[in-house]
Design a protein around this nucleic acid. Structure first.
Lengths: 205, 205
DNA sequence: TGCCAAAAATAACACCGTTGCGATACGCTG
DNA sequence: CAGCGTATCGCAACGGTGTTATTTTTGGCA
């Protein structure tokens, strides 16, 4: 054998970095392998050697997005109060999306037409959402939340954060709208909607 | 002058129809003006005469999508009970999305990279969501919902339906998951979260 | 009937993702 | 230390895209 692992890691990172910049600057449409290679001072073939194809390169961005997202989720302090913790995780979700909106598009809104995450990437994505389910399961077991399947609650929470954030990112929200305040209220309203009926006073802290 | 308005209306409809089929069959990536023109037995130039550009053609699909969506919203019977009516509109929203998922992608998830709706189309989109705000405003005035800005509640409701539906359409929901049931529950939990605290028993029917 | 502008066809342009081919450069084996 | 073999990468091409300049067709009105 010969030359088994030259694969320039610095070039790999540079390409990923530049790819993110291209998408962030001019939208997913502007990510072209030719421009990317030219910017990095190399050729399109290098991209194929390093990643395999354009979707594979996007898959690397997808993974990086979930890595950052997971890190942000993991470092949000939890209190043990289910409603407060769900709101806090929702805040982290939005903060992550606003910090890297182009990555959010790749991760959740399929902003690059040809791309589907591979099995590893999907597994990582599922893992990242585990903390959410843990909180909910606990709240149901403790009788704080109503007795419905935990997946139902988890999907509901994911749905509202994803819905509001993607509406915000695609510019669908009205002008002069206090997004931060409304987001907070909507999350709280949603979380409180899952409380057991006899516990549903508005602020159980 | 001569030949001021030949603009074949039948061809226009045929192109729109076929464009929808192409996207529905193989995704937004598969909508190519050349293939579209060939399928319709004409040339790409005809598309430019009729629509102007590819984004303009997509804009026509966007408008058609909101037309169907608005019609479905308008014919859902309302009871006057805010929670029930919000759930009913949410059901109609999902039914519309599942009936024309490719149109939903164009309307709400920017599934075609180069496309932005023009001013008329955006206006139509805003009009379509008016019934929602009317119900909410009434519920707040009547003291059924908590005293928060109506836009906040409207965006919250829109957020959860959009979030859940787009998660469903992009295949992000787990297998063996009763979407219909969970969707219904999540909508109800969300709507009830906006009730005034003293009214928040679970089933006020 | 004939004119003339609008509509549509042909063919070109610039760009895209991808891929064969050839040159290069590097690690392992002798 | 020499050199072989292969992974890597630059060049150039292929088929595809949206778009447009040019030319041809066509149909309503004078």
């Amino acid at each position: 054998m010969a030359r088994p692992r030259t694969h320039d890691e610095a070039l790999r990172l540079k390409l990923l970095d530049r790819a993110g910049e291209l998408i962030a600057a001019d939208g997913p449409k502007a990510l072209s392998l030719r421009k990317l290679a030219a910017d990095a001072g190399t050729s399109t073939t290098a991209v194929y050697s390093l990643f395999g194809s354009k979707p594979d390169l996007v898959n690397a961005l997808y993974t990086e997005g979930f890595r950052r997202f997971g890190a942000r989720m993991a470092r949000t302090p939890l209190t043990g109060d289910a409603v407060e913790d769900l709101v806090a995780l929702g805040r982290a979700y939005r903060a992550s999306a606003l910090a890297d909106p182009h990555l959010y598009g790749i991760m959740f809104t399929r902003s690059i037409p040809g791309f589907e995450p591979n099995e590893d990437a999907e597994q990582l994505a599922r893992e990242t959402l585990k903390p959410l389910e843990r909180i909910i399961r606990r709240a149901i077991e403790d009788g704080v939340f109503a007795d419905v399947p935990p997946e139902t609650v988890a999907v509901g929470c994911w749905g509202i954060v994803h819905g509001l954030v993607s509406l915000e990112l695609t510019g669908n929200l009205p002008e002069e709208f206090d997004v931060t305040e409304s987001y907070e209220r909507a999350l709280r309203a949603n979380a409180e909607g899952w409380l057991r009926p006899q516990n549903s006073d508005s602020n159980p802290s």
